[in-house]
């Protein structure tokens, strides 16, 4: 009967790691195998990545609510990962990907575009923000901020 305990023990180990990452590294409770879904509005879909980009001598704030906007110039995978778990290694890798992206002014401000349609910029800061609730009052809360050492 010891064989029956192997998979459940694995579940307990993963869920414990997930709980620890969520409490110490801001992993969203919805992800990571800890069964925290439907417990909070803090899920990857409601988190937003904000980036400070320096282009043409000017620094601007860009909201990347859809990480796939950087495809196919850069991989959105690292942005998705940093949004769910905004640790330093994942944020650094996301910044590396964003360094490949060209930026141009669009209707709603600076946005990622095809390489020949914009200008490459330098990523100054990456922030992950999420909604915070107080009754039915909704405000924003910064989950994590990371600046590349350049």
């Amino acid at each position: 009967m010891a064989l029956a305990w192997v998979a459940p023990a694995l579940l307990v180990v993963v869920a414990t790691v997930q709980l620890s990452l969520a409490l110490t590294q801001e992993l969203t409770p919805w992800k990571g195998g800890g069964f925290g879904m439907f417990a909070t509005v803090d899920e990857p879909g409601t988190r937003v990545i904000e980036v400070s980009v320096r282009t043409g001598g000017e620094t601007q704030e860009v909201v990347l609510d859809d990480p796939e906007a950087v495809e196919p110039v850069a991989s959105s995978w690292w942005l998705e990962a940093a949004r769910s778990l905004p640790t330093e290694p994942l944020s650094a890798r996301a910044a590396d990907e964003l360094d490949e992206v060209a930026w141009a002014e669009q209707d709603e401000g600076l946005a990622p575009v095809a390489p020949d349609e914009g200008e490459h910029g330098t990523i100054r800061e990456i922030r992950v923000v999420r909604p915070a609730l107080d009754g039915v009052a909704v405000s924003r809360e910064t989950v994590a901020t990371w600046s590349p050492r350049r």
Binding site: T46, V48, V63, D65, V129, R130, P131, G135, V136, A137, V138, S139, R140
Partner: peptide, 12 residues
């Protein structure tokens, strides 16, 4: 709210 940073109160 996440973009502009203003707090909004919803009706319910």
């Amino acid at each position: 709210v996440l973009v502009e940073g203003e707090t909004t109160t919803l009706d319910e």
